[in-house]
Amino acid sequence: MRSFFISLGASILMLFIQSTWLSHGIIFGIIPDLAMSIVLFSAFINKDGQGIIVAFIAGLIADMLSAAPLGYYAFLYVSCAYLATLLSYVAEKDIFVIPFLLGAGAAIARGILTRLVSWIFAANINTYQLFSAEFGIELLADGFFTVLVFFILTFFQPFLENSPRKALP
């Protein structure tokens, strides 16, 4: 339970930082989704689905901070966290490749899912322009920042892991 609240608190903190201190963007006006990186980390190391619940609540908070309709980010975060949890069953966490794939893959998943959501709910749904330069930059930024976030969070993994004993061989 403690790890749940720590993961949730860290991701919410990142959302507020994204909307204030990083609001002008880091690279070409693009804001890296650091909250998503934390959610992905939590989902990847907690195979019992704890990260998915963290993603849902963090997503709802993101919806409140955004002009997006309630449920938009919750859906995107839960879907990406679910994919990260599934990936954790077939891949080991390393220092670069898996975090980068998770970050960049989550950006691609968001791009596709926003299209899907806009088809279902026509009103007030913004979508990613998948073949724009801006989306490419966001994809790379999310990939690299997820590598950085994973590297930092590895030092705090015992606080973010639901049952650390399960990770032992």
């Binding site: 689905g49 998915i52 849902f56 309630l70 839960v78 679910y82 279902i120 009103a123």
Partner: peptide, 26 residues
């Protein structure tokens, strides 16, 4: 080796819940 049913259930429940909220809020 394989994700448990609980993980799939949690994800499915929360995805449906998110979409329901989105449906209502839009």
């Amino acid at each position: 080796h394989r994700p448990s049913r609980t993980v799939h259930r949690k994800a499915a429940l929360l995805i449906v819940l998110s979409l329901s909220i989105l449906f209502i809020s839009t």
